[in-house]
Amino acid sequence: MAGEDARLATGGDARDVARLLHEARAERATPAPRAEVLAERLAALLEREDTFAIVAGTPSIAVGLVTLRPNVWSGTIAVLDEVFVAVDARRAGVGSAVLALVVAEAARRGATVLATEVGEADVDPQRFLERHGLVIVDPATDDRTLAVRRSIR
């Protein structure tokens, strides 16, 4: 099973990671740079300590991409920029294996919080994230978590 071979990606995996990230954006009809552009960026980013990816499968069928950033409240936040499993590989535990390794690697690198964004209409990804402890509604206050952003370029 591909989830059993989930591993930390290296710069050599940049093309595979870029392909999966491009597939993820295409599935949601979200604009994205070409896969070649993403691969070039990833080759450099994956060599840094503040960015990592977890992949599963050969060739890769799942990815979790994380950026670490300092935060005054919690020290370091691991931002799950993307978690994606190819359509044919879903519901087989691959995403869970990738996310488990994402959490372990983020903790190893000093992160104390894992955060991500998910669209309100993306019900299946919401369920997946909630099953793994990333909650949209704070159980203590019943408040919904919102992420807001604005393009500056």
Rank of each mutant, 00 (worst) to 15 (best):
T67K: 10
A115P: 07
L8I: 14
V17Y: 12
A24I: 03
D124I: 15
G95Y: 01
V79M: 09
E40I: 00
T141L: 01
L114Y: 05
S96R: 15
P139E: 01
A9K: 04
V63A: 07
R131A: 09
G3H: 04
E23D: 14
T112D: 11
L42D: 04
H22V: 01
R48D: 04
E49G: 12
I136N: 03
L134A: 00
V72M: 14
R127M: 09
G57Q: 10
R150T: 02
V79A: 03
A86K: 13
R108F: 07
V103L: 10
A115H: 10
W73N: 09
V55Q: 06
E120R: 15
A35W: 05
E27I: 02
A62V: 07
R25E: 10
D5F: 03
A39P: 01
L101H: 08
A32H: 13
L68A: 07
T51Y: 00
A78E: 11
I77M: 03
L8N: 04
D143W: 09
V98Y: 02
R144P: 10
L46N: 09
V137R: 12
S151R: 15
A2T: 04
R41D: 01
E82D: 14
D138L: 05
H132K: 10
G75P: 05
A147L: 07
A89N: 05
R127Y: 00
A115F: 07
D88E: 15
E47G: 12
R153P: 12
F84Y: 14
A147C: 01
D142A: 10
A32M: 13
V148W: 04
A29M: 09
R150H: 03
D81P: 01
A104Y: 03
G75E: 08
P125C: 02
G110L: 11
L65Y: 13
A78V: 07
R131V: 01
L68Q: 05
D88C: 06
T10A: 13
V123F: 02
D16S: 09
R25K: 15
G12A: 06
D143I: 00
E40M: 02
A44L: 04
G3C: 12
D5A: 14
D142W: 14
V137G: 04
V66P: 13
L38Q: 08
D50V: 00
E36V: 14
I61F: 10
L99E: 02
A78H: 08
G11I: 02
A43P: 05
D88G: 14
T112K: 04
G57E: 05
R131F: 06
D124H: 06
A89G: 06
V79W: 13
L114C: 07
R91T: 12
V83P: 04
